[in-house]
Design a protein around this nucleic acid. Structure first.
Length: 410
RNA sequence: GUGGGCGUAGCUCAGCUGGUAGAGCUCCUGGUUGUGGUCCAGGCGGUCGCGGGUUCGAGUCCCGUCGCUCACCCCA
């Protein structure tokens, strides 16, 4: 092995061949964000550790074991951001955005960090796109955001995702329900699979996902969150569903849907794709009406989602190729002339390239081919030039001085 | 954090019961004294992940370690 250094565990380089695909995801999302009035926000890559401990929830796996946390030289504890919602809400509060017309609609894309064992579709540094609408409790916003993510995935040609939809109700109703579920599980404890039994306290919702036959039988009669929604919560959820139905977006009601962060209430959703291996979640989110207040702002309803760029890429399968260049200039001897010509072409906005490695004439033609140039321009000793179409092989004499207009430059 | 699989050339891999490193692709050059994609030839390229052990001798066996990978947990 020649190189002694390699990218840190769970990280990766996005090489030029893959960059076009990454850019396509960002561009598709950006177009949807712009069309829906979501302004782009950039927050720091790292934040005060306390922001995540409080905003994401002390009890979550993210905070308990997945944060990249370190001390800076001033003795402050900082953490590489594991998710985007808490930082965006921090910014909302810090800049007094509650004084702006509500809701404030924000979008972002960039790297995030979680200290986990990597596997397919899961990394320590990964990329997310996301959107948050802060300051409105209307079900219209819930529907708008869900459709925003659905539309982005559709634009990227992903058609085999499933939308799972649920409501957690109010924090109080959710807590009541979890207690009820725990009680139910304990009453049937001896019928449950060991793994499920061990998690009655930590994660009772997980019991719904078990593939153990006896456990599944028990869960058939387990209480359902969706049956426990009280008046306003039920009304809100019904309104969201109606809006999605009206938009023609299919979804599966799934009262067992769990999201990993503490702050969710009411609407939660997730897009999954079962071709992705164990990490089937492409993106998801939900309402978090208490978070802004928790972070020191006024009581403010809000909702948002995030989607993993690497998982979207997995779901996309075929990925976009980089743009080809217009012309590759080939010259056996007069490299300065070729360089000057390429310089003029580039100034005119035409993508042009030339050999920079001292290749033979044949080698330059090979390079022209590999560079996926549409044309090769072959400079001849007498000052004349041949323009060769690299697909058809046809070529004709051209005046190098006329090349800019010949190739449609500005 | 737990468990399985795997680390040989830039890439994909071969290397039988241990006998001092191979192929294909890529790259460069030439055949074609100025015309790419096919073909042919030559060339460049390897501390066999790392460390230790067994052995006359280790890519091959043993131990450790690091890394990658898949799964669990959980999640984007």
């Amino acid at each position: 092995m020649a190189s002694r250094h390699q990218a840190p565990k769970g990280t990766f380089d996005v090489l030029p061949g893959d960059e076009a695909a990454h850019a396509a995801v960002a561009a598709a999302a950006a177009a949807r964000f712009a069309a829906a009035g979501y302004g782009r926000i950039e927050t720091p890559i790292f934040e005060d550790t306390g922001l995540f401990a409080r905003g994401v929830g002390e009890a979550t796996d993210i905070v308990r074991k997945e944060m990249f946390t370190f001390e800076d030289r001033g003795g402050r504890s900082v953490t590489l951001r594991p998710e985007g919602t808490a930082p965006v809400c921090r910014a909302y509060v810090e800049h007094g955005m509650h004084r702006l017309p509500q809701p404030v609609k924000l979008s972002y894309s960039g790297p995030f960090f979680r200290y986990e064992r990597p596997q397919e579709g899961r990394f320590r540094q990964f990329h997310q796109i996301g959107a948050e609408a802060i300051g409105s409790g209307s079900p219209l916003v819930d529907a708008e955001l869900i459709l925003l993510l659905a539309g982005t995935l559709a634009d990227l040609g992903i058609d085999d995702v499933e939308l799972r939809l649920s409501s957690l109700g109010s924090p109080a109703a959710r807590a009541r329900y979890r207690d009820e579920l725990r009680e139910f599980l304990r009453s049937r404890e001896d019928e449950l699979a060991p793994g499920v039994r061990d998690r009655i306290d930590a994660n009772p919702m997980r019991a719904f996902d078990s593939d153990d036959a006896a456990t599944r039988a028990v869960m058939k009669s387990a209480p359902r969150m969706l049956d426990r929604l009280d008046g306003e919560d039920a009304k809100h959820f019904a309104a969201v569903r109606e809006l999605l139905d009206d938009a023609g977006l299919a979804y599966r009601l799934d009262g067992t849907l769990v999201r990993g962060l503490d702050y969710y209430n009411r609407t939660v959703f997730e897009f999954t794709c079962d071709r992705l291996g164990a990490q089937s979640g492409v993106g998801g989110g939900g309402r978090y009406d208490g978070l802004v207040e928790l972070l020191g702002g006024p009581p403010t309803p809000a909702i948002g989602w995030a989607a993993g760029v690497e998982r979207i890429l997995l779901a996309m399968g075929a990925t976009p190729e980089p743009e080809p260049i217009a012309v590759f200039v080939v010259a056996a001897e007069d490299r300065e002339r070729a360089f000057a010509l390429v310089r003029r072409l580039r100034e005119a906005g035409i993508a042009a390239d030339l050999d920079l490695a001292g290749r033979s004439f044949k080698g330059q033609m090979k390079q022209a081919d590999r560079s996926r140039a549409r044309h090769a321009l072959i400079l001849e000793p007498g000052g004349t030039a041949m323009l060769r179409d690299m697909t058809s092989g046809e070529q004709r004499e051209v005046d190098p001085a006329e090349l800019v207009s010949e190739l449609g430059g500005r």
